[in-house]
Design a binder for these strands. Structure first.
Lengths: 251, 251
DNA sequence: TTCGATTTGTTCGTATGTATT
DNA sequence: TAATACATACGAACAAATCGA
């Protein structure tokens, strides 16, 4: 046994993993804002006192995870929720005819309340924690297609109110990112088929017994921290949910 | 204009992209069978007359695409559809209680027929081409959960018959791979909610008007060549469809 | 428009570590 | 134990894209 020392409780990561972790920590701490460039590879190599190749390998993984974005000649940037590339990564509803368009969102309600036990697991928050609860109706080509119920811990969005939410430019995740420094980088969705509650059916223009797609989503930021719980009802009369594992255009 | 030469019709790929393409061609041609090791990095570097780093970069991408599988000290292998890691990549139905198990499949029908126009687009085959058409019932924990209708071009599966299909070990894609050298490496699924046809509802133990999940899948092999068309009906009473972009355990 | 500085992209080479057989 | 194969890390050189002087 040559390396009995390594048997300690610590896990020894490769250098590039350590670098990746430290970069991720800086991102989570908001050291570099979204859309901004992080230091150049050569500068990071100096700071971390490692070779440029090690920096590249760390950044390679963050780019593959869509957390960073590299551009030759310009620099490396914190990915934003305003780029076309990113938008459809978190929106999976497409027309059955193959059309792809971004929805127009209309806020239906906004309130602050206390979390019930439902969110303890998915949002890792205690019962009674203050949350925002928001309802939206999304239209595609003018027709209502999707109804959203969004739940987020109020603590993460200090001054959020109805006005700010409704008057935002761009997407909801763009708002989280630009105003609150919260970066949604991953979502997990669970889909099932069911008949929507009558009020939802009415909003979507469906018969009460009509089948609809129910989507339960949890959105995560760095280090698998959950930040949003969302339940959606989708009318699949003219639209469907597209699941394309490995649609990595930029590989 | 310094580089008028580059304006030719050829696209100049980086070396590692060329290497990747040539490796992929060898895979598509069946040069290395699934589960087998491909030549070592140093040997490939000799063959292609490039540095080992360039080989690594090409293989990096193929590993990220789950086409190859690297194991330190052993070699680099053609990924198979028998590894636990891979299995759930193509099977997305999980229990609502979070349970994950592989289904038990029961073949209901098997026949050879001529393709109608429906498959021209999705399978890139002409109307009238011979196809196999197979129906399956999948059970989880003993209960029927999913009904499958599979369509594949007969030309790709020369000696396939009812016996071979029903008596296979392992998964359907495992059969495609082991017996016919056809490697499914990517699927695109389109989900909607609808009431299943009465015979399907009966099989799944659903009321005729009950909502179910309909999944239309196209499976692809190398170079985005479609090889299978599949329509599934899922009872989402106790199960749901899990969409987890970026569940890359091994990163 | 041109040029130079900066930054990422590609390719090569070498050395050493670690896992497998 | 030795040989083999992949993993990590370093360094160097040049190409290509970008941007501002």
């Amino acid at each position: 046994m040559a390396n009995t020392l390594a048997a300690g409780s610590l896990t020894f990561n490769p250098l590039y993993k350590e670098v990746k972790i430290r970069i991720t920590r800086s991102l989570a701490a908001g050291k570099w804002k979204s859309g901004e460039a992080i230091p150049s590879e050569s500068r990071l190599a100096e700071q971390f006192n490692v070779s440029i190749g090690t920096i590249r390998k760390a950044i390679d993984e963050l780019v593959a995870e869509r957390i960073l974005l590299r551009q030759q000649g310009r620099g490396t940037f914190v990915a934003t929720h305003t780029e076309d590339r990113t938008l459809f990564y978190f929106f999976h509803i497409v027309g059955k005819d193959g059309s792809r368009e971004l929805p127009v969102s209309e806020m239906l309600s906004f309130d602050k309340r206390k979390a019930d036990s439902r969110y303890e697991a998915s949002l890792s928050i205690a019962r009674g924690t203050k949350i925002f609860h928001i309802q939206n109706l999304l239209k595609l080509a003018g027709a209502p297609v999707l109804f959203d119920e969004i739940t987020v811990p109020a603590a993460l969005f200090p001054d959020l109110d109805e006005e700010i939410f409704a008057q935002r430019d761009g997407t909801i995740y763009g708002l989280y990112q630009a105003r609150y420094g919260i970066n949604v980088i991953r979502i997990i969705e669970r889909l099932s088929a069911a008949s929507p509650p009558p009020p939802v059916a009415a909003l979507l223009g469906l018969r009460v017994t009509a089948p609809a797609l129910m989507i339960r989503r949890v959105a995560y930021t760095y280090n698998d921290t959950p930040v949003e719980h969302r339940v959606s009802w989708v009318s699949t009369e003219h639209h469907e949910y597209l699941s394309d594992l490995w649609k990595n255009e930029a590989r």
